[in-house]
């Protein structure tokens, strides 16, 4: 018998996932037979117009919502209920206002009984440093800017060392300057931490700037239409012409699928 060895087995995968929402008599077919496989350390961006089910897919991947059919696998095992193996950055930073910056980053760590208090402090301090907020370790949440809040949310999601980091449009509520700075930081942190990251966005340039792969989704029902490998060297500059060329190609493809949707 020939033993076939996959050179890079999937760290995380979604297999044949479908989801339909019912509200009264209205049925929304959010996801149809979706499959996606992500390698260890890969940064994958899901792009699509609003209503293409990308946030639903992210909720399913996080275990916050059950698919009607299909599987979510982490290291080859059924991922099941939400848990610290898959942590999420949401569109809002969703920091807890009753805790300061360190308290927020420690939240997940305090749920790890195997760590000592000193270890938790050290880990929290490390990640607060990684996102560049050493000086704000004791700051209150309402004193932070939008970009700083998302940095704290990133540190909070990284601290418990999840297998996969899921990001649900975490930069869409920020101003352009802050966003560009965070593109630089996300790339650096991805390189340093080697995390497997899945980012959902509707911003094509953002996806090209951050992703090793950009996966295009189309709406009603949500389907994967096309995948683009982005072989550009890192760190990437979101304003570079090469990056713009990739973004243009993807945007054209995206518009095709949307046109198809309108025609239907």
């Amino acid at each position: 018998m020939l033993l076939q060895v996959d050179p890079a087995p999937a760290k995380f995968s979604v297999e044949r996932v479908s989801k339909t929402f019912r509200r009264g008599r209205v049925e929304t077919h959010a996801l149809d037979d979706m499959s996606l496989s992500v390698r260890q350390g890969e940064f994958v961006c899901l792009v699509g117009p609003s209503g293409c089910g990308k946030s639903t897919l992210l909720d399913i991947m996080a275990g916050l919502c059950r698919p009607d059919s299909g599987h979510v696998l982490c290291d080859g095992h059924e991922a099941g209920e939400a848990g610290p193996d898959r942590l999420v950055m949401f569109q809002e930073a969703a920091l807890f206002p009753w805790l300061d910056v360190t308290g927020n980053v420690m939240f997940g760590l305090k749920l790890r009984p195997d760590l000592t208090r000193a270890q938790r402090r050290e880990i929290a301090g490390h990640y607060i440093g990684l996102v560049g907020l050493e000086r704000f370790a004791r700051a209150h949440v309402h004193e932070l800017s939008g970009g700083m809040k998302q940095r704290v949310a990133l540190a909070r999601a990284l601290a418990p060392d999840p297998d996969v980091l899921l990001m649900d449009e975490p930069l869409s509520a920020l101003d352009a300057m802050t966003r560009e700075q965070l593109y630089v930081d996300f790339q650096r942190i991805h390189a340093e931490s080697g995390k497997t990251i899945i980012l959902v966005t509707h911003n094509v340039r953002e996806a090209v700037c951050l992703g090793d792969r950009v996966v295009l989704m189309s709406p009603r029902p949500g389907r994967i239409r096309e995948e683009f490998a982005i072989p550009l060297a890192r760190p990437r500059d979101v304003n570079s012409p090469e990056l713009a060329r990739y973004a243009t190609d993807i945007t054209v493809a995206l518009k095709d699928y949307m046109g198809e949707d309108v025609a239907e």
């Binding site: 916050l64 610290p84 969703a94 807890f96 997940g108």
Partner: peptide, 21 residues
Amino acid sequence: PAVYDKVARTMGSRGIHKWTR
């Protein structure tokens, strides 16, 4: 905010821990 609940669940906070923390 509903998103606090999502944060808590993904961090592994359930039951009494979620209610009190």
